[in-house]
Write a protein that binds this DNA or RNA. Structure first.
Length: 415
DNA sequence: TCTGGGGTCCTAGGACCC
DNA sequence: TCTGGGGTCCTAGGACCC
């Protein structure tokens, strides 16, 4: 038996948890650079504000309706997520953190009635300890638990829905749109329609062989999961296979110097993530681009990679080759809008192929460890590489960000 | 004026091996 | 006239997720 616990309107709810004045009011949270709307409270959804819409197109509507608008505050959301996950783990250690606001639990030890009480206990505990509302969907497979969660969120006031029985499945699946099924996106929806598949029930009852011939194994798994056959197992937390760091700039960037600072900063962010998961990487890919929305501006987008002889997790090693890549692709005269980096060929630090002709550099290890420890103790970026820049004029503006209530001593909530 | 930032998995095709 | 059968690895592109 799977339960999917999903926080309602997560980012918007985090803002509300520390600011009760937002209760019952429409709230939206914006993406980096205050570009797009990426979270909405129920009140904001009712105003017709769509997910992912560019903010500038909806700004007037927001102002007219006194919508409370926030820049994203990832320090806060990440910390709140950890609190929720810690509570969930205390209920059920057999769990998979699926995203910042969702987790699957495997709960096999319960009888029919107990499980509802158990789910309610989880909801109440999370609400009491964090202030965040969650919904819980329960069923026999992950795909069905996802559907149950949708129902819990939209059609019940209880916040818990049990979709294990055939009776409940017969009631729900005929009305559940195919595009809302986990794993069916826009393209698959379009391709399934000629097969007269419009609802979750249509897909469940479809001819498996016919669909397998026309679609990938992904679709076959979804069909089987809808038939109560579990094909997508609970997964343990794995180290990332790919680490990306990229941002749009706060202003148009034209100089190589600004790009170098930005790319060095992103490299530093990514390398810290890399070390935190005890991995190292053998290379880096650097990319930059102009603003693709500005059709009249000359466009340029390019990337370049560079590999090291042996993997590293040291920021200084990586910044050095990142800059080398950047200089290869930089062309003067363009108005740059975004740059980023991707770490390549990530592997665990325990697996290490030494270079016969290079000696280990113990000093470098000590340096990196010390920097990390100081930053851990005294706050992010207490020490940083000068290559990252000091003024960082290219950096994003987040003028609507709420305080980092839970991770900064100087931004604690005042009661 | 103004349009985010991460991730994963699958498949096909090419290059190579014996 | 006629040209096998079985593998692996890598990459790009596409689809999906939050």
């Amino acid at each position: 038996m799977f339960a999917l616990v999903d926080c309602n309107n997560f980012y918007a709810s985090c803002e509300r948890a520390f600011n009760p004045a937002l209760e019952k009011k429409p709230v939206v949270v914006l993406s980096n650079n205050d570009g797009c709307i990426i979270a909405r409270s129920n009140e904001a959804k009712k105003l017709g504000i769509p997910m992912g819409a560019p903010y500038y197109q909806w700004r007037q509507r927001c102002e007219d309706n006194q919508v409370q608008v926030y820049s994203s505050n990832y320090a806060l959301y990440a910390d709140m997520s950890q609190r929720v996950m810690t509570i969930l783990r205390s209920f059920c250690p057999h769990m998979e953190v699926y995203s910042i606001d969702e987790a699957f639990l495997v709960i096999d030890q319960f009888t029919e009635n107990d499980v509802i009480a158990y789910a309610n206990d989880i909801r109440n505990t999370i609400k009491t300890h964090t202030g965040l509302p969650v919904s819980i969907g329960i069923s026999t497979t992950k795909t069905l638990a996802k559907i149950a969660n949708h129902i819990a969120k939209k059609h019940t006031s209880a916040g818990v829905y049990d979709l294990r029985s055939i009776t409940s499945q017969e009631k729900v699946l005929p009305h559940f749109p195919i595009g809302d099924v986990w794993g069916i996106g826009r393209q698959l929806k379009k391709k399934l329609e000629p097969f007269r598949i419009h609802t979750a029930k249509d897909l469940r009852d479809a001819d498996l062989k016919l669909l397998r011939k026309n679609f990938s194994v992904v679709v076959e798994k979804i069909i089987r999961e809808l038939r109560n056959v579990s094909c997508i197992p609970l997964e343990a937390i794995q180290p990332r296979k790919q680490i990306i760091s990229s941002r749009s700039f706060g202003k148009t960037v034209t100089s190589l110097n600004d790009l170098e600072e930005a790319v060095s900063t992103y490299t530093s962010i990514a390398c810290l993530k890399l070390r935190n998961q005890k991995s190292h990487a053998r290379g880096i890919h650097v990319f930059l681009q102009t603003n693709t929305f500005k059709k009249n501006d000359p466009q340029y987008a390019m990337g370049a990679s560079c590999m090291l002889p042996i993997p590293t997790a040291h920021t200084n090693d990586m910044i050095r080759i990142a800059k080398k890549c950047l200089r290869e692709i930089f062309k003067p005269g363009f108005k740059y809008h975004k740059a980023g980096i991707m770490l390549l060929d990530i592997s665990p630090q325990t697996i290490r192929q030494h270079d016969m002709f290079l000696s280990d550099n113990q000093k470098k290890e000590t340096l990196t460890d010390t920097i990390d420890q100081i930053n851990q103790k005294l706050g992010k970026n207490t020490l940083f590489y000068c290559a990252e820049g000091i003024e960082k004029s290219w950096q994003i503006k987040t003028c609507l960000r709420s305080p980092r209530y839970t991770t900064r001593w100087d931004e604690l909530v005042v009661v």
